[in-house]
Computed example of a mutant assay.
Amino acid sequence: MSIMNLYDRKTITIAKALVIASVVLGHILEAMLLDGNRSGFVSGSYNSIYLVHMPFYFILSGWLFKGAQPKLKYLIKKSKHLLVPYAAWLIIFNIPAIAGFIFNLSQGNMVGEKLVFYQQHFLSQLYGGMAVSGIQMILWFPMCLFFTQQLANYILDKFEKHVTVITSITALFYTLAYVNQYFFPEFHLPLAINVVCGALPLFLLGYYIKKYPIKMSFFWGLIVFCLVICVSLFIYSYPLTYHMRGANYGIPIISILAALGGFFTVLLISNYLSRSKYVYSVSQPLGKASMTIMYLHALILVQIRTLDVYNVFWLLIAGILIPTSIHLAMGRVSILSKLFLGEDKNE
């Protein structure tokens, strides 16, 4: 088997479906841990998921990157795909605050503590990253991905023929990521820009592994290494997992190799599952709706839990299927597709 056999449409679609399901499951397990469930199975599953799922997206983004593109054209393209939906969903999440602001302003009540509250609230929404939480906790990801893509495109456009320069830049950003983690853990830039330091090495790793495929012995070694690390996470509480929003990237070298092994493990499983037409037909809408699920699943999970539903299976189903249904409905309306999905059917 060649690694390049893992790069086909069906495999990638199923992989996206599996990983977005793991994102939803990870947040379900996180809520269980916060509720006091400290079982080894729950914590081990949670840590294993967090070792792989967010690094997967940045590695995959680099894996799918076709090479340096004209900077302005690429900026416009990714702005439509990421920035416009980000702004649209941010407004949706803030409808209650916006309505309250307009109402209080119309009543002449926008003074004192209310004024301070709304100032702080809207500033935090514009700041993004670690300044928002709860149902908006995932908002760090699309902005971090956008800046990572733009920076990677710029670097590859300028220096792709200079491997030493690319290696040095990657090492510098990787080092800065751990400086942030170990020495300045409270340092967070607006829109999670500081997390680009941890994301860029993953993106470039994915790009160069696609361009220069690794040997099969190393491929299988990474998969085994990832599985060993995941098993160890069920037994020991090693700080190996990625919590990228908080600028936590695990242990240097070990965590990134395990995450890369996880990336290949997901692709390998997805490639096997792609042989089933039924699995692909079920996975296809989930894979295509992965970003919508990313935006909405936390809101759905919170609302479902208010109904005293705590069963992991039903929470997972709701957290995946409801956003997917919304995605499919929006895809039928051109303006909603442009605003919330970043898709323009005329292009």
Rank of each mutant, 00 (worst) to 15 (best):
N5T: 12
N5E: 14
Y7Q: 11
T13M: 10
H27D: 11
A31F: 08
G40T: 05
V42S: 08
V42D: 10
V42W: 05
S43Q: 11
Y50N: 12
P55A: 11
F56T: 04
I59Y: 07
L60Q: 08
L64K: 09
L64R: 08
K66R: 15
Q69T: 12
P70W: 13
Y74S: 14
L82G: 03
W89F: 10
L90F: 01
L90C: 02
I91V: 06
G100Y: 04
L105F: 06
Q107I: 00
Q107L: 09
M110D: 02
K114I: 12
V116P: 01
V163N: 04
T167G: 12
T170K: 10
Y182S: 08
P185C: 10
P190I: 08
V195P: 05
L205T: 15
Y207K: 10
Y208P: 03
K210W: 09
G221F: 12
G221N: 12
S232Y: 12
I235N: 09
I235T: 12
I235F: 14
Y236D: 15
Y238P: 09
P239W: 13
H243N: 15
I256Q: 15
L257F: 15
L260T: 15
I269V: 13
L273M: 11
L273D: 03
S276V: 03
Y278P: 01
V279A: 06
Y280T: 02
V282K: 04
L286H: 02
L286N: 01
T292W: 00
I293Q: 01
L299H: 03
I304R: 07
R305Q: 15
L307F: 13
L315I: 04
A318M: 10
I320Y: 02
I326F: 04
I326P: 01
G331N: 02
L336E: 03
F340W: 00
K345G: 00
E347M: 07
